[in-house]
């Protein structure tokens, strides 16, 4: 698999406190990588390190195959667009003027494409209105537009839906999906709003106390999180014989227990098993949400302020 970013045991210390603790992560090309963690888990610090706003205390990272310790990292960073913490823009300038400034900063030869960019983020009709007077959602979209100048291959968004109203959240979500699907931009999104992430992410990285606890693809996570029936039977071999012809997805856990994935009518299931002589002793419906999965993974929520941001 081709990776846009890999970090190698990146550690960031502030005095005695470890904001990042040997963090190792892999972001595949073309992915929407959901970076999940509690407040203060180290998400923003990781992003700041990747963006060159902070130097890691130990470890390094590879961005498009270039090590952070090489001088060429400054050139490679030109392939990144990022909104870190809060959107960055000139408050006293209009959306268009802001994009012109960003084009100048990136050394682009002309302002061609600004109109399309404004249209893409839904700010084409803002005219001469100063950015500081924009709504929160508009500011967020302007921040993303600034990040999209120069057509980056890798977009980093730090808590992009924080503080947005439901309509704003939907707009940002659709924009991110469009960028990923239509322009094949790899996206790293940090968030602690898991429900929102689950609608976007193709891959997840779970971070806790500065350490990456697990990386998993959305497909694998879905398998782990989907609805299932936990069945206790007299003999799972008989259960297997009964279910095999139906194409049902199941998992044998022991001689008497099994998980059956999908939705079932209990009456029909009982009849099906009875036909093979399998007795259904008990059955419980279970579902693991992303939130439950995350909590199970990192433990019960602790009061905020564990690791530093």
């Amino acid at each position: 698999m081709e990776y846009v970013l890999t970090t190698n045991a990146v550690t960031k210390r502030y005095g005695n406190m470890r904001a990042l603790d040997a963090l190792t992560m892999h972001i595949p090309k073309g992915a929407v990588y959901g970076f999940v963690g509690r407040n203060g888990a180290g998400k923003t610090t990781t992003i700041r390190v990747i963006c060159g706003l902070q130097e890691p205390t130990e470890g390094d990272y590879m961005l498009y195959g270039v090590s952070s310790k090489e001088a060429a990292i400054f050139d490679v960073r030109k392939r990144i667009g990022a909104v870190v913490e809060k959107p960055a823009f000139y408050g006293d300038l209009s959306a268009r003027r802001n994009l012109e400034m960003q084009y100048t900063l990136l050394g682009l030869p002309s302002f061609e494409g600004i109109d399309a960019l404004l249209k893409l983020v839904g700010l084409a009709d803002t005219g001469r209105k100063k950015a500081r007077n924009f709504s929160l959602g508009m500011k967020q979209r302007l921040g993303i537009a600034m990040a999209l100048c120069g057509k980056p291959d890798f977009l980093i968004l730090d808590e992009p839906v924080n503080g947005l109203d439901p309509q704003g959240i939907i707009e940002i979500r659709e924009l991110i999906l469009r960028l990923n699907r239509e322009q094949n931009i790899t996206v790293l999104i940090s968030s602690h709003i898991l429900d929102e992430l689950s609608r976007l992410a193709t891959h997840y990285g779970f971070i806790d106390k500065g350490h990456l606890v697990q990386e998993i693809s959305a497909a694998d996570l879905e398998k782990k999180c989907r609805k299932y029936l936990h069945a206790v039977v007299n003999d799972t071999a008989l259960l297997s014989r009964a279910l095999e012809p139906t194409g049902t997805d199941y998992e044998i856990l022991s001689e008497q227990t099994a998980n059956l994935y999908g939705t079932f009518r209990i009456t029909e299931l009982t009849k099906l098993l009875e036909a093979e002589g399998c007795e259904l002793i008990s059955v419980t419906e279970q579902e693991e949400s992303l939130e439950n999965y995350f909590i199970n993974l990192v433990g019960d929520p602790q009061p905020e302020g564990g690791a530093a941001k």
Binding site: C51, G52, L53, F74, D75, V76, R77, K78, I80, G81, A82, V84, E85, K86, P87, A88, F89, Y90, G91, Q102, L105, L106, M146, A147, G150
Partner: peptide
Amino acid sequence: SSQYQDGIFRLKAIAGHS
């Protein structure tokens, strides 16, 4: 100092400037 407040120094660093 507005460049701190508006995040412009951040933009410059992200754009690949030391």
